[in-house]
Design a protein around this nucleic acid. Structure first.
Lengths: 115, 115
DNA sequence: TTATATACATAAGAAACTGAGGTATATTTT
DNA sequence: AAAATATACCTCAGTTTCTTATGTATATAA
């Protein structure tokens, strides 16, 4: 379900950020939301997503809640308090990384035009 | 020599971009240049850099040239023609990825303010 | 009825790192 | 003079994170 080799390491940040905005989401919903937000550019594979969700849960950043919808099971994930703290830190990290990349890739760029 | 988990996958792009601008660089020089450009934010480890350089060379994107400087050996890398083509494509990919990440992380952002 | 969409999951293998270790010379600090 | 740091290359075991394939199951669209 993917095509971008650059996602490495940022999947966790994506998940945490989406859950900060949406309170409660299930796996499939996350893949669709990312596809929608990026106009199909980034496609989260299930093989990457589910292990990532399980890991975040094991680390205590997410909690789960099973719901039955039309005979189908949905596993909703939401942020714990630790998860809420982690979002800001992960976002700051990503922000800083993107700024650094801009300085490498766009070395002539003036500071006031950077991210 | 590092701290950022997000570099995964973008190291090749960094190397290619630096060589597009500098004609000819050696490994150690690349680590220092990245450190300098990013104010120490991104530190390329040697364990990541040298295998990456060897791989790019094996793929025909880089060529090497040994030079002796003060009894010390330097291995200079420069872009081949294939390498020059690859830079643009890799940069476009990164650009697109960063834009996608912005749409996820900063969903309220107006298009005219995006990268 | 067959394919696609929804919804979860695991597992083998690949790729890209980290961190530690190794070799060697030059310079700076104590 | 000795020790530490800087310069300069390299490899390799182990870890993390992905891809791709596979499996299960229900609902809907072709």
């Amino acid at each position: 379900m993917s095509s971008n080799a650059l996602i490495k390491g940022s999947l966790q940040t994506i998940i945490l950020k989406l859950l900060e905005e949406n309170e409660k989401m299930y796996g499939y919903e996350i893949t669709q939301k990312v596809k929608e937000l990026t106009a199909g550019e980034i496609k989260i594979t299930e093989g990457a997503l589910y292990p990532a969700l399980h890991k975040l849960e094991a680390e205590g950043l997410l909690t789960t809640e099973i719901q039955q919808v039309d005979n189908r099971v949905r596993k909703y994930y939401s942020l714990t308090k630790d998860g809420q703290k982690e979002v800001s830190s992960k976002l700051a990290e990503l922000q800083s990384f993107v700024e650094s990349m801009q300085r490498i890739i766009n070395p002539g760029l003036k500071p006031e035009f950077s991210l």
